[in-house]
Simulated assay, not measured.
Amino acid sequence: MLLDNITVLDFETSGLDPTRDRVIEMAAIRCYGGEIVSQFNTLVRFDGVLPAKITEITGITSDELVNGMDEETAFRILNRIIGDSIIVAHNAMFDLSFLHNALLRLANRSFTNSFLDTLTICRNRHPYPHNLKDMCSRYLIELEGAHRSLNDVYACWKLIEKMNEEQSVESDLNVLGYMKKYGTPKWYPQHASVVPVEIKYA
C-alpha cells in the first residue's frame, strides 16, 4: 500500500527563499500501516531577528529560537526519521526546496525519496481555496493552531488518508503542480513530474 510507509513533514521558515532563509521549526511523523511510529518536533536555532511578518504568521519569536536545536542536529534527526519513506507535505515544493538546500549545505547531497504533495492533489480535485485549513474543513478534519509545524503535520496526514480513501493517490506520486502564471519552478526534485495547474473556481 502506498501510504504504508510515509513521513509527513512541515517546516516553518524565516522567509520564502530556500537558498537564503532558514528552517526555524520542523515537525515530522513517520507512519507505518496507518500508525504513527515516531514523531519529531523542534524549534531550530536562528541567528538574527525574525521578520515581524513571520512572527505574526507563526507566533514564533526570535527570543524563542535562541535555545532551539542547532540546524545540523535537527536535520540529522529528521533525515533518520524519513529514511526510505515517501515524504508527504502540503505545498511540497516549498518544504522539499528547504530540505534540498539544507542537505546540500550541511551534507553536500540532496534526497531521492518519492513524495506526495497534498496541495497538488487538492488543486486537481477541488475548487479554490486549497490551503490546509480550508481543505481540512472540507474533509471535516480538526486543525488547531495552523502554521505551527506539528499541528499542520497531523492535519496533513489525515488529509492524505481521506483523499486516498476517496480515490487512490497512487497516480499523484512525485507529481508537483505549479501555477502557470509563475512559470516552471527554478528548482524541483529530479524525479518529479512538474505539471502546470489551472485553479478551479466554484
Rank of each mutant, 00 (worst) to 15 (best):
I77C: 06
V49P: 02
Y32F: 13
L9N: 11
V66Y: 01
A107V: 03
I6K: 10
F94M: 02
A27F: 02
T19M: 12
L99K: 02
A102N: 13
V88T: 14
I82P: 02
M93D: 14
L9C: 12
D21K: 03
I54P: 02
I77E: 15
L99I: 03
G83T: 02
V66P: 00
R76I: 02
P18S: 15
S38Y: 04
I36G: 12
T13Y: 02
D4R: 05
D17K: 06
D17A: 12
D17G: 07
F75M: 12
D95V: 05
I54A: 15
E25G: 11
A74G: 05
F46R: 07
V44E: 00
I29G: 06
I24G: 00
I24Q: 00
V49Y: 10
L106F: 04
S14C: 06
V23W: 01
G34P: 04
L96A: 14
L43F: 13
N5K: 05
E12A: 12
E12W: 08
N5I: 01
R22H: 11
N108D: 14
G48N: 05
E12F: 07
R45Q: 15
V88H: 11
S85H: 01
N101S: 12
D47E: 14
T55C: 07
V88C: 13
E35A: 10
D47F: 04
I24S: 00
I81N: 06
S97W: 05
F94L: 01
G34D: 15
F11I: 11
D21Y: 03
L43W: 08
T19N: 13
V49G: 11
N79K: 06
R20T: 10
M93R: 09
R80Y: 05
F98E: 12
G34F: 13
V66K: 10
L106S: 05
F75D: 03
R105P: 00
K53F: 14
H100K: 08
E72Q: 08
G59N: 11
F75G: 04
R45C: 13
N79H: 09
N67L: 08
L16W: 09
G15K: 04
D63W: 00
V66S: 00
I82Y: 01
F98M: 09
I54E: 12
D47G: 07
D84I: 01
E25P: 03
N41Q: 14
L106V: 05
R105I: 02
L16H: 08
A74W: 00
L43I: 08
F94Q: 01
P18M: 05
V49N: 13
D21V: 04
S97L: 07
T73I: 09
I6M: 13
A92S: 14
L103C: 09
V66Q: 09
L106Q: 04
A27S: 15
E71L: 08
I54T: 14
E72L: 06
G59I: 11
T19C: 10
T73F: 03
G83R: 07
R22A: 13
E56W: 05
L50E: 13
V49M: 15
V37I: 11
S38L: 07
T7A: 15
I54M: 10
E35W: 04
P18R: 01
R76H: 07
